[in-house]
Amino acid sequence: MKKSLIILSMVAASSNLMAAGRDTINVVGSSTVYPFSTVVAERFGKNTDFKTPKIESTGTGGGMKLFCAGTGVDTPDMSNASRRMKKSELEMCQKNGVKSITEVLVGYDGIVISNSKASKQFSISRKELFLALAKEIPAKDGSETLIANPYKKWNEINPDLPATKIEVLGPPPTSGTRDAFAELVLEGGCKKFPWIKAMKKKNKKKYKTICHAVREDHVYIEAGENDNLIVQKLTNNPDALGIFGFSFLDQNSDKLQGSMVDGKEPSFEAIADGSYPVSRPLYFYVKNAHVGKVPGIKEFLKEYTSEASMGDEGYLTDKGLIPLGEEKLNSIRKDVLSLKSLKL
């Protein structure tokens, strides 16, 4: 009986393959965009007669690989990304026959540096954050040499900062949040040293190593991909700072406070108008060849870019997405619905 069951399941599997089409939209990609795409997918499934799209959380890079593997029902229709598609990825896509891709800018995600409400709110500049967290920093005497990061307490960097141990919980190198943090905060602070900035043109590789390397002497503590874990640890340790996405601060605003970065508070409005310096765009990419082949893609795009979801008061903002603003949304909606092909 067992054997007949196995054979039965095999037959079921192969018959499924014979049927050429697929009736569920498949989405892969970034875990940062995942919470937003899933909300749209769920509403789309409830509001229409199409099946609820399947959203995988594979990470941006992993998603791109699957997305660019080719066209055909066994490859995903869309890929979420917490950064823009790289030129190399677009080339890989085109080499594999994925010729036409539509890019959709979803909105922005702020990265916050926050601590427990039990202690004072931090006000810190990106330069100070670079000095606190970089692996090597410029020597204090002003000469153009690098020394291993000597700082142990915040007030050693700036006497206005508290006299507590530097202790920062943040995402590991595999995370997109970490990439964005390195690029926006560390590099942003590192550029404030003119001689390092000048290096960007001469020796880009070295410039990147200096600006993106995070210290490894247990001052920066990698807390895994789970932002909830960082939130928990921060409430237990009032001296520590944590780095995570804005939506987690939004959900825990009774326990945690966001630090001011370059004098700007990480509020919904400040991230939306771009005055808060640490925010990044979120995207997803659509394989145009699949539109019309897999049912519902066009309708899904329409729902995603609708006022009710991506708009200033859409349901995605309830989940912590920072909206694009009306003008930008309108122009993006036009491009998306006409399936404008991406060029980099």
Binding site: G45, T52, I55, S57
Partner: peptide, 14 residues
């Protein structure tokens, strides 16, 4: 691909 957001309850092994 089983780490995914899937709303519908699966009806079969495929």
């Amino acid at each position: 691909g089983m780490v995914a957001f899937i709303v519908d309850v699966p009806a079969g092994v495929t």
